[in-house]
């Protein structure tokens, strides 16, 4: 992966480089050098612990959008034994910002759907920066219905800045596509597990986000509006985005406390991008555990619980 780090990761990356250089030069019989290396490694552990255990809201936003953060296909290659990608909504086009397919996860067949961002300019243009057009939601719905027909659980991995605000997107009515998904997902007779892996950007995220379990990776965010968008409306100043992010309460533990998600999935220390294999393993185990539990529940009861869960969300007085 390309070298990329955030401001607050700089010290860590520098120390890591120093250690790597030292290790390369290390001769096997130099005890003093070995001792020094060990001290540096300990220093690194302490530093990582220090930096990542006290993250501010804005630092978590940055982690959720981290350039090296694993995306759907990074997980697919690690958690599936086989993945047959399917394409198109059978109505208009194939939306490459959303990947759908038939997945074999731990010898279980599941339908897997996930947003996909790119990592460089070219792939980002191809993936439309993970911003989905109507056909992406309609492709996802087609797969979900297929899953329901053959009693396959549905897994969605959510990571999008939002639905794509474009001309064609309005012409083909992205609002209808999102609304339709919420409506149809309500009554699907199979377990649905939704996991926010990075950015849960508003309606664009919710469009594949109705699940019996809605889980968030520790450093992911889920919000009704981007902090930048909120800041420019409320404060007329995009630079106040960190403040807006705090006001909006968009981090995993805050949303768990509000009862708007079901659980938080811990990430390896330093964030998913530092140990992708480990993150993928945690994710896989969690998916298998949730699916196993949900499959024990009768479809009618599953749906009833789903309706009740979302039906009870909100805060008011009367």
């Amino acid at each position: 992966m390309a070298k990329f780090y955030l401001d607050f990761e700089k010290e860590i990356v520098e120390l890591e480089e120093k250690i790597n250089k030292k290790r390369d030069k290390l001769s096997s019989d130099d005890e003093k050098e070995k001792e020094e290396l060990k001290i540096l490694e300990n220093e690194l552990d302490v530093l990582i612990e220090e930096v990542y255990s006290n993250l501010t809201t804005w630092q978590r936003v940055q982690l959720a959008r981290h350039h090296n953060r694993p995306y759907t296909l990074d997980y697919v290659s690690r958690i599936t034994d086989n993945f047959i990608e399917l394409h198109g909504d059978r109505l208009y086009a194939d939306d490459t910002s959303i990947v759908v397919g038939l997945a074999l996860i731990g010898s279980k067949s599941m339908v897997l759907i996930g947003h996909q961002k790119g990592r460089d300019t070219k792939s980002n243009i191809y993936r439309n920066f993970g911003m989905t057009n109507p056909e992406g939601y309609r492709k996802a719905l087609r797969l979900m219905k297929l899953g329901a027909k053959f009693k396959k659980p549905i897994i969605t991995l959510i990571d999008t800045p939002g639905a794509f605000p474009g001309k064609g997107s309005e012409e083909r009515c992205v609002a209808e596509a999102i609304a339709r998904n919420l409506y149809e997902m309500a009554l699907l007779r199979v377990p649905i597990v939704c996991i926010i892996t990075g950015e849960g950007g508003s309606g664009g995220a919710l469009g594949i986000g109705i699940g019996d379990r809605v889980l968030m990776l520790e450093n992911s965010i889920y919000s009704v509006i981007s902090p930048e968008g909120c800041a420019s409306i409320i404060f007329r100043d995009v630079n106040k985005a960190p403040l807006a992010a705090e006001s909006l309460k968009i981090t995993s533990y805050e949303l768990l406390e509000l009862g708007l998600i079901d659980d938080v999935i811990p990430e390896p220390l330093g964030g998913a991008h530092r140990e992708v294999d480990k993150m993928a393993e945690i994710l896989k185990n969690r998916i298998l555990k949730e699916v196993e539990e949900l499959e024990k529940i009768e479809p009618e009861i599953l749906i009833e619980k789903r309706i009740k869960k979302f039906g009870n969300m909100g805060f008011w007085e009367e």
């Binding site: 609304a179 919420l182 409506y183 508003s202 309606g203 109705i210 909006l248 708007l260 979302f310 969300m313």
Partner: peptide, 22 residues
């Protein structure tokens, strides 16, 4: 959605749509 209510306002989309499905 009313952003001053954060994610809870987004969830009203889910809530109303799901109820309409029912």
């Amino acid at each position: 959605a009313r952003m001053m209510e954060g994610l809870a306002s987004l969830m009203q989309m889910a809530k109303t749509s799901i109820k309409l499905a029912e």
